[in-house]
C-alpha cells in the first residue's frame, strides 16, 4: 500500500462537459463562498462528469469516493497501518482532500451507511473542520477545499434517503437530462456520431423516458445513449446496438423490453 499522492488527483486536460443551465455559475458561487454542494439527478445524467469539469475549471484536485454500504468512517478519514512492525498513519480520501485543499466528491452518498455520513457534518457547516479522532487531531479546511455529494432521488426507497440534518447543509443542484438539442450535441461529441444519429438516439431516449409511468424504473440515460452511439460508430447495426445498450439494460420485463425493441425498430 502506497501513500496516496495528491498530485495524481489533478485533472490536467479539459473534460468534455456541456453546460446546459445555471449549474456552473451556481457551483462556482458555492465554491467561492465555501458552501458544500449536493448534486441530485438520475443516473447517467452527468453528475460525475460535471464534478470533473468543475475541478478542472477551479484547478483543484478531485478526489472521488464511490460510496457503498460497507464504507466506514476510517475508509473516509484514514487509519493506522502496520508496516515493518511500526504503525503508520494513512490519510483517507476525505482527509487527503482537506489537507491539500482539494475537492472531495462522495458519489451516491445514500449508499453509505447513515453513521458514516455523519463524519461530514462538521466539514459541511461553517466550522469546516475534520476531527481525526484516532490521532486526536482537528484539521481545518483551507478555503480551497470543497465537499460535494451526489445522489439519485429516483430510487424511491425508504432505506436510501438522506437525513434532513445532512441535506440541509448543502446547496442542491438538480442535474436532469438536458434538453433534446443539447443532449444530442453531447451524444454527438462523446460517441463521435453524426448529428442525425445523435438526434435519433435522443428521440429514442425520450420514448423510453415516457415509459417511466408505465413500469420502467428509469428511462435511458445520456450515458446509455453514448454507449449506443459508440457501438453504432464502430459498425454494429443500429438495431442491434440499441438493443444491447438500451432495451436490455433498462429492464428485465419481457413486455417492456419488447416494447422498447419495437421503438428501436421503428426508428432504425
Amino acid at each position: 500500500m502506497g501513500t496516496q499522492r495528491i498530485e495524481e488527483h489533478y485533472i490536467v486536460t479539459e473534460p468534455y462537459y456541456r453546460v446546459h443551465g445555471q449549474e456552473l455559475t451556481i457551483a462556482l458561487a458555492a465554491y467561492e463562498h465555501q458552501i458544500p454542494l449536493l448534486l441530485k439527478g438520475p443516473t447517467g445524467s452527468g453528475k460525475s462528469r460535471f464534478m470533473q469539469y468543475l475541478a478542472w475549471k477551479l484547478g483543484r484536485p478531485l478526489i472521488t469516493v464511490s460510496c457503498h454500504d460497507d464504507l466506514s468512517t476510517s475508509d473516509l478519514v484514514g487509519r493506522y497501518l502496520i508496516r515493518g512492525g511500526e504503525t503508520v498513519w494513512m490519510d483517507g480520501p476525505l482527509t487527503l482532500a482537506v489537507r491539500h485543499g482539494g475537492i472531495c466528491y462522495l458519489d451516491e452518498i445514500v449508499e453509505a451507511r447513515k453513521d458514516t455520513t455523519v463524519v461530514i457534518h462538521p466539514l459541511a457547516d461553517d466550522r469546516r473542520e475534520l476531527p481525526i479522532e484516532k490521532r486526536g487531531e482537528i484539521l481545518s479546511a483551507p478555503p480551497e477545499f470543497m465537499l460535494a455529494l451526489s445522489y439519485n432521488p429516483g430510487y424511491q426507497s425508504v432505506v436510501k434517503d438522506l437525513k434532513p440534518s445532512t441535506r440541509q447543509r448543502f446547496i442542491a443542484l438538480e442535474l436532469t437530462y438536458p434538453s433534446p438539442d443539447i443532449e444530442a450535441e453531447i451524444v454527438q461529441h462523446e460517441a463521435g456520431v453524426s448529428k442525425e444519429e445523435a438526434e435519433k438516439l435522443v428521440r429514442l431516449a425520450e420514448m423510453t423516458r415516457s415509459l417511466e409511468d408505465a413500469g420502467l424504473q428509469e428511462g435511458a440515460s445520456t450515458r446509455l445513449l453514448i454507449h449506443a452511439g459508440t457501438l453504432i460508430r464502430s459498425g454494429i447495426a443500429p438495431r442491434q446496438a440499441c438493443k444491447v445498450t438500451i432495451s436490455e439494460p433498462l429492464s428485465d420485463d419481457h413486455e417492456l423490453v419488447a416494447a422498447i425493441d419495437e421503438m428501436i425498430s421503428s426508428l432504425y
Binding site: M207, S210, L211, D213, E255, L256, A258, A259, M263, S266
Partner: peptide
C-alpha cells in the same frame, strides 16, 4: 395489446 400500448406510449409520450 400490452406490448403495443407500451410501444405507443413511448412513441407518443402519452398513454
Amino acid at each position: 395489446k400490452n406490448r403495443l400500448s407500451l410501444y405507443l406510449r413511448g412513441v407518443a409520450g402519452r398513454p
